[in-house]
Amino acid sequence: MNRLLRVLLGMVCVFSVGLTQAAPKPGAMAPDFTATDTQGNTVTLSRLQGQYVVLEWTNHLCPFVQKHYGSGNMQALQKTYTDKGYHWYSIVSSAPGKQGNIDAAKANELTTSRGAAPSGVILDPSGAIGKLYDARTTPHMFIIDPSGKLVYMGGIDSIPSADKADLAAATNYVKAAFTELEAGKPVSTPVSAPYGCSVKY
């Protein structure tokens, strides 16, 4: 009886691990997805292995996003890392009719007008990719290493606010993570509080 119970419990554990594996976790493989970016290119995360990938959840009407774009902070990060050959995808998971929901033309116009420099913008109106990553806020940042493992997830920096004046004193976690990764060190802050507007699923 005891043995049967243990076997059953074991099965339950395996099953629940199987379920929780889907949720993103630093050190685990990043959930794979295939999408088409706003330039019409097919993006499959697992095919980007061999290089770092940044995923940035965004909504151009969210004041927290506006803090990081209005100050040029986000564009500067995008430029720094795409210049190194890293991949950077901005993802919009706003559902149709919800704040921030845009079409490809609008997304491309925003990239141009804001001087943004991502590798591509992915529209996710069904929220499938957002839910795969349990993206909660805009912005919400994820870094995936060349082996496909998630090495950072969380906020863009250490001061949750919508105020540009806080940028100078904040620790930018994306920058901090890359500084450590490029020096061959593990990321010392692999998880931080994502802050911002809710993702408009």
């Binding site: 969210c62 004041p63 919800k98 704040q99 606010s161 919508a162 105020d163 507007c197 809710s198 408009k200």
Partner: peptide, 12 residues
């Protein structure tokens, strides 16, 4: 004082 007020949208 600084705050965030939200409905569907958020306004600081």
């Amino acid at each position: 004082a600084r705050w965030l007020v939200c409905a569907d949208a958020c306004v600081p």
